[in-house]
Amino acid sequence: MKKLLILSGKGGTGKTTTAAAFIDFAKAKAFADCDVDAPNLHLVAGVTAEPKRKDYYGSEKARIDFSKCIGCGTCIDNCRFHAIFPEGDVYSVNPYACEGCGVCMYTCPVGAVNMEEDIAGEMMLYKNKGVFSTAKLKMGRGTSGKLVTEVKNELDHYGKSNEFAIIDGSPGIGCPVIASISGVDLVLIVAEPSLSGISDMKRIIKTAQIFQTKTAVCVNKFDTCLENTQAIEDLCSQGGIPFVGRIPYDKQASIAINAGHSLAEIDCPARDGLLGVFENTFKIF
């Protein structure tokens, strides 16, 4: 199964909008949302069925047994993350601050601290419109890359009979993006014609190049700054990166998305631009 990953160097460029339109244009039967910190592809991808849910366990967290704690304060003295606080005559652990290092467990003189598996998020698998794998990481948990890998594993397992899959990634270049890029066949970068958009596009291009992954670029809302759009095209030309099209700014796009519709369903200039980008992308996919 070939995998197309849609990324952006920054948030708000139209990455998820593009992914949802591509899913409809291609009539894709296998797709995933790997933006596990803030998944929203399901809102515009026509996913309505109740998913199969299961807990995702990340790193361990410390737990203090109040019945054993003698309130000596050794744990709080040794916790460099300030995750332990007094609770009456004993101590308790803030799970949002705990990094699971285990120092409190090893230093507790009475063995009142245990390291326990922590439910760090929830995985969801939909099967009403093909196979759609996604997940939601709990606030403050630091295992986003591992969770992205689990989302992709679910996609591979349940969608392996499909010819291709479309994956909506995360903004930026952090752990979830790195985990998303691993093993895909093409990365499509949705760029924004702004100075920050160009800067972040360069960073995600370099990240993809480290993985030796084929990369293509399109520009969303290109007509908001034609000078920067041209600069993006020139950068692609100089770097030998396929430039697959421009998508115009379109007020109808926001209306459609707010109503939960993919732009593939709407007759508007943005839809036409996206269709052109889709066709050019699949020529090199």
Rank of each mutant, 00 (worst) to 15 (best):
Y96E: 10
M105L: 13
A165M: 03
Q238C: 05
E233S: 12
S92D: 12
C268A: 14
F278T: 09
K146L: 09
M201S: 07
G46F: 06
E154V: 15
K15W: 07
D37S: 13
C236L: 09
E150L: 09
L41R: 03
I241P: 00
C98E: 07
K129L: 08
I173W: 01
T229G: 12
F25P: 00
K214H: 08
S180H: 03
L41V: 01
G73N: 09
C79P: 11
S59G: 09
N153M: 14
Y106D: 13
T48L: 10
N258A: 11
F222A: 13
Y57R: 12
G174L: 06
C108F: 01
A165R: 04
V190K: 04
P176D: 08
Q212V: 04
G9M: 06
D250G: 00
P171M: 02
I205Y: 05
K160L: 05
M115W: 00
E192I: 12
G159W: 07
G130W: 02
G197C: 02
H157T: 12
S194M: 11
V148P: 01
I266K: 03
H261W: 10
M115R: 01
A191S: 15
A28Q: 03
A231Y: 08
I241T: 04
V113E: 10
C75M: 11
C236R: 03
A259N: 12
T134F: 10
I173N: 00
C101L: 04
F243L: 10
I181T: 01
T215Q: 09
S144C: 02
C104E: 08
C101R: 07
C218S: 15
K202M: 14
M123Y: 13
I204Q: 06
L186Q: 11
I284C: 09
M201L: 12
G260S: 10
A32L: 03
D156M: 13
K29H: 10
H42S: 09
I181Q: 03
E116Q: 13
A179D: 02
F211K: 00
I76S: 13
K10Q: 02
R80N: 12
N280V: 05
F66H: 08
K136M: 13
D65V: 06
Q212A: 10
D156R: 15
D35F: 06
I70H: 15
V217H: 03
S170G: 00
G142P: 00
D185S: 14
N78R: 14
F243T: 08
A20T: 01
I84V: 13
N280M: 11
F66Q: 15
M201I: 09
L43Q: 05
M123P: 01
T74S: 13
A49C: 15
C75P: 08
K68Q: 11
A49N: 12
I232L: 15
G102C: 07
S133E: 04
F66E: 14
F132R: 07
F25Q: 02
F164M: 13
R203I: 11
L186F: 09
D65N: 15
T215R: 07
K68E: 10
G172T: 04
N40H: 13
Y56H: 10
E99P: 02
Q209N: 11
L7W: 03
E116H: 07
E233L: 14
S144D: 00
D33T: 11
V36R: 12
S182I: 07
A259P: 00
I241L: 10
F31V: 05
A83V: 12
A21V: 02
T215P: 03
P95E: 06
H261K: 15
C218D: 05
Y158P: 06
G14V: 00
